[in-house]
Amino acid sequence: MSGVAASHIFVDGAEIPASRIAAEAQNHPATAGRPGDAWRAAARALVIRQLLLAEAERRGLTATPERLDDVRLETAEEALIRDLLDEALIVTPPSPEMVQAEWQAHPGRYRSPSLWDAAHILCAANPADLPAMAKAEDRANRILGLLERDPSAFAELARAESDCGSKDAGGALGQIVSGQMVPEFEAALERLGEGAMTASPVRTRFGFHIIKVHAHAPGQVLPFDSVKASIGEALERAAWARASRAFVAGLVAAARIEGIDMEGV
């Protein structure tokens, strides 16, 4: 069967109406040029939901909704699915030896944040506006040419040219912590040594940046005792996710599903 959802989908003879799939599709982003992706993801999600609810009913579970926060309460269906997974999934917490082995195998994952003292000049443009982006890139290259001739003019040019509020401070961004900036900007910071400036403008969702790093303090590997609790929680979450996928895959394999390819669930 094709991977695209049909307009009529049945789970063990019960139809999932197209109207429900259309409503659910609003919660699933579509890839540019592939509008069927959202429909297919919505259909698969509803099939899984129906299978879980049917299994909860088969086990005789009853819904006891819990409060999610001060204003939100679980729906009866959400409560049933939560109770089902609590009953069906048996996840053993990782042993201390497993936690320590994970830390020893991947110490680089558990670091304190990197810190940078950096400045930038932003030539702003909306990435969806191609002429504006081209103009912004040309302007950034012009500024970069001036800086290549006189690097000491960075703060002066930032005050005159930058479209960021940091222009008033000569482009200075202060102390930047890893994870604080958009990925493209941070990747450029990672490549630069202290005192270095980007050789070409860096494109982000905000336009084009010229970036200069004044100082960099790389993150340090954290001692085991300070991260063992978070590693244990991460390992338990991963084990729960694996068990959940296996449980759903078993429900899918045992069901009669028409109108949508559930391969890979």
Rank of each mutant, 00 (worst) to 15 (best):
E184R: 11
A153C: 07
I121D: 06
E194K: 13
R111D: 00
S178P: 01
L144M: 05
E148Q: 15
G170S: 01
I121N: 07
F206Y: 15
R242I: 07
I231D: 04
L235G: 01
D150I: 04
D168V: 15
P127M: 10
R237I: 09
G207E: 02
N141S: 07
P113S: 10
I143T: 10
E137D: 13
A134D: 08
R159L: 14
E233Y: 09
E184V: 02
S162H: 04
N126M: 05
S114F: 12
K212E: 09
P113R: 14
A128E: 08
C164R: 09
P131M: 10
R142H: 11
I211H: 03
E161G: 00
A160Y: 05
I231S: 07
S226K: 13
S166K: 14
H214V: 11
P201L: 06
A155Y: 05
S152N: 01
L189K: 03
E186S: 05
E161K: 14
I143Q: 04
A160I: 03
C123G: 00
D117L: 14
P113E: 09
L147P: 04
P183S: 08
Q220V: 11
L146R: 15
Q220S: 12
L192Q: 09
A134Q: 14
C123M: 13
A128D: 10
A160T: 06
H214L: 09
I211K: 06
S152W: 09
E236D: 12
L146G: 00
R205M: 11
G171E: 03
A199R: 14
M181R: 13
E161I: 02
A199S: 10
P131R: 09
G193I: 01
N126F: 06
K212G: 00
W240F: 15
A243R: 13
H216E: 02
E186G: 03
N126D: 14
A196F: 03
A187H: 08
N141D: 05
A243C: 01
G232W: 10
R237A: 13
S244M: 10
D117V: 09
A187P: 01
A172R: 15
R142N: 02
R159G: 12
I176L: 13
